[in-house]
Amino acid sequence: STVKVRLGHLEVTLHNVSEEDVRELRELWKNGADEEDLRRWLEEWKK
């Protein structure tokens, strides 16, 4: 499914993403990950 995730002022649209992935991303964000960390996660996730 396609999910729009809003993290601060960063809005990311993920395609074919699982609930688990979204949860993981939100956890990262809650734990103080900055945009760099999130971008890195997204790069990994896209592979």
Rank of each mutant, 00 (worst) to 15 (best):
T2R: 09
T2A: 07
T2V: 10
K4F: 01
K4I: 15
K4G: 02
K4Q: 09
K4L: 04
V5F: 05
V5Y: 00
V5N: 00
V5D: 00
V5M: 08
R6F: 07
R6N: 08
R6Q: 11
L7A: 04
L7F: 13
G8S: 05
G8C: 02
G8R: 06
G8Q: 04
H9R: 13
H9D: 14
E11D: 09
E11M: 10
V12Q: 02
V12N: 01
V12E: 04
T13S: 06
T13E: 10
T13Y: 07
L14W: 01
L14H: 01
L14G: 01
L14A: 02
H15K: 07
H15T: 11
N16T: 02
N16I: 02
V17H: 01
V17C: 03
V17N: 01
V17P: 06
V17I: 11
V17G: 03
S18I: 03
S18Q: 07
S18P: 07
E19V: 10
E19L: 09
E19F: 09
E19D: 13
E20M: 09
E20G: 07
E20D: 13
D21H: 13
D21V: 10
D21L: 11
V22C: 08
R23K: 13
R23Y: 12
R23V: 08
R23A: 13
E24D: 12
E24P: 02
E24N: 12
E24A: 14
L25M: 04
L25R: 00
L25W: 03
L25V: 02
R26L: 13
E27G: 02
E27R: 06
L28T: 01
L28E: 02
L28C: 04
L28G: 01
L28R: 06
W29N: 12
W29I: 15
W29K: 13
W29D: 12
K30H: 13
K30V: 13
K30W: 09
K30Q: 14
K30E: 15
N31Y: 05
A33R: 02
A33H: 04
D34C: 03
D34A: 10
D34I: 08
D34L: 11
D34N: 13
E35D: 10
E35N: 06
E35T: 08
E35S: 08
E35M: 09
E36I: 09
E36L: 10
E36Q: 13
E36T: 10
E36R: 08
E36Y: 05
E36H: 14
D37R: 10
D37K: 10
D37I: 14
D37C: 08
D37P: 03
L38K: 01
L38F: 11
L38E: 00
L38R: 01
L38M: 08
L38G: 00
R39G: 05
R39T: 08
R40C: 04
W41A: 02
W41T: 01
W41V: 02
L42R: 00
L42W: 10
E43I: 05
E43T: 05
E44T: 06
E44S: 11
E44W: 07
E44Y: 07
W45R: 11
W45G: 03
W45V: 10
K46Y: 15
K46S: 14
K46E: 12
K46C: 04
K46I: 15
K46L: 15
K46P: 05
K47R: 11
K47E: 08
K47A: 11
K47P: 08
